[in-house]
Write a protein that binds this DNA or RNA. Structure first.
Lengths: 261, 261
DNA sequence: TGTACATCAGTGAACGCGCGTTCACTGATGTAC
DNA sequence: TGTACATCAGTGAACGCGCGTTCACTGATGTAC
């Protein structure tokens, strides 16, 4: 790696860092190449050696943000001991999402807030964007791989999917089989998606100020909500008993069965 | 009402309409007084007779949007026959939220998307902002007023609230008692809040493009999700039986008991 | 090891643009007697 | 019913600002022989 290449990588990093700082001050629409160049002590036209346009810089920030929250969630899940029940992995993932969002509110807003009008997210963002949903759904594979869900232990009724939803979920399940390491039953996948929306709905409301004056420090509400959410997804009621009755069973499974249906 | 006053009201309306159209084209940050004045065939400085600044115009749009979705939801609930179970009112409210959001995506983004940096929502917005959550929670009052929840019919376990959450919910419940027409038990209130976040999480993900390439027409997913959501909030499992067993009982209650605990 | 040439990073000036807001003004609409 | 004055809506010019992007350029870093 030549000195030139090292300098280029370093400056690219500095440009994005400065842009992130500016994001925090003025938001995505206020992000200005001239301001970035000013902070870096360069002339504004110099930035065009690194990013062909303002939108490309924005895209880089979006990809970085998706990757950052994605790897944070993946790490949080990986940090849970293999013997721990699926439930613990889900809870860890939820907490990781919230923690990252609170630590990087403006990057969170960039990727999960209202889309910037006039900006069309390019193809390259969809891979990184899928990391969090994949990470959330992957633990469910362990339930599916178990052959059957702990039907006897669950007290939560499971209304059947409508025909249209069943087909849609089956198609999605097949399409993402590679990403999540196996085909999920439609019902389980739908529960996972609902949990995904619930999780981000709660985090967004907290960050965007909808809880102002009511559930303002949302810690207790969040903890309660993700407990209920885990009940809903997994179909156990460990929120009551404190420990999943099926945990022992699941723990005996290999943590990572081979991919493919 | 003098001719002058009528003209003023009319033009104020036209300015806001033009601004809403522009919102759809360029978003909140792109909203420009000069563009509005251009569309109206006026000189830009003339707008200052109607709104003292750009931010005040934005505030007016935000209040209008909150009022619009608020009254839409209220109407949807009111349109449900009095004899219908609480469940039907909840579902109607959820569908109304989604329909309005899809018909007014940019106004939705204005109030539920990422906050505009540098813009601080003034006090006048909090009343209108509360209309939807109040409308969602108000039907739950009927459950609370019934004296007890249909405990026997519910199959969903109800883990207790943590101490901190219980206190917070009790405080919030007391603070909003006037708005919802009665004090709600903390547990019921928390379920309502969780449902609120779930509902808007799902609508936001649909509108902001997170379902792209997966659950893209989200109709079936949404219908399923709100069914589960009603199960969760009300504790009945009408999604399975098709009709709430407690519906008859609740229908005998007065639709609007006097406010206050 | 040294020279000749190509590649690339950064400069500085310029283009053309749109923005929010102020201000002194004209003329029409409303009000008091 | 008519006049004198006050209020208000809309004009047009101007201020000062920051922006994205282009372009011909200089000088440093890399590469081939």
């Amino acid at each position: 790696m030549t000195a030139r290449e090292r300098a280029r990588a370093e400056l690219t990093r500095e440009i994005k860092e400065s842009a992130r700082r500016q994001l925090a001050r003025v938001g995505a629409d206020g992000l200005s190449l001239r301001a970035v160049s000013r902070e870096l002590g360069m002339v504004s036209s110099a930035l065009y050696r690194y990013f062909p346009s303002r939108d490309d810089l924005l895209t880089a920030l979006i990809i970085d943000a998706y990757d950052a929250i994605g790897s944070t969630v993946e790490s949080a899940i990986a940090a849970v001991p293999d013997e721990a029940p699926v439930r613990e992995r889900l809870l860890a993932a939820c907490r990781a999402v919230r923690t990252w969002a609170r630590e990087h509110p403006h990057e969170y807003a960039l990727i999960y807030g209202s889309p910037v009008p006039g900006y069309r997210a390019p193809q390259e963002t969809i891979g990184p964007a899928a990391r969090v949903p994949f990470a959330l759904i992957r633990p469910l594979r362990d339930i599916a791989a178990h052959g059957q869900e702990p039907e006897a232990d669950t007290a939560i009724p499971r209304p059947p999917l409508s025909g249209a939803l069943g087909e849609q979920a089956a198609a999605v399940g097949a399409a993402i089989a590679d990403g999540v390491g196996g085909t999920l039953p439609p019902d389980l996948l739908v529960r996972g998606v609902i949990a995904w929306t619930q999780l981000f709905g709660m985090v967004s409301f907290e960050l965007f100020g909808q809880f102002a004056n009511t559930f303002d420090p949302a810690d207790a509400l969040f903890e309660h909500a993700i407990t209920r959410l885990a009940d809903f997804v997994i179909g156990e009621s460990a929120g009551v008993t404190g420990q999943s009755p099926a945990a022992g069973q699941l723990a005996d499974l290999p943590a990572d069965p081979p991919a493919g249906s």
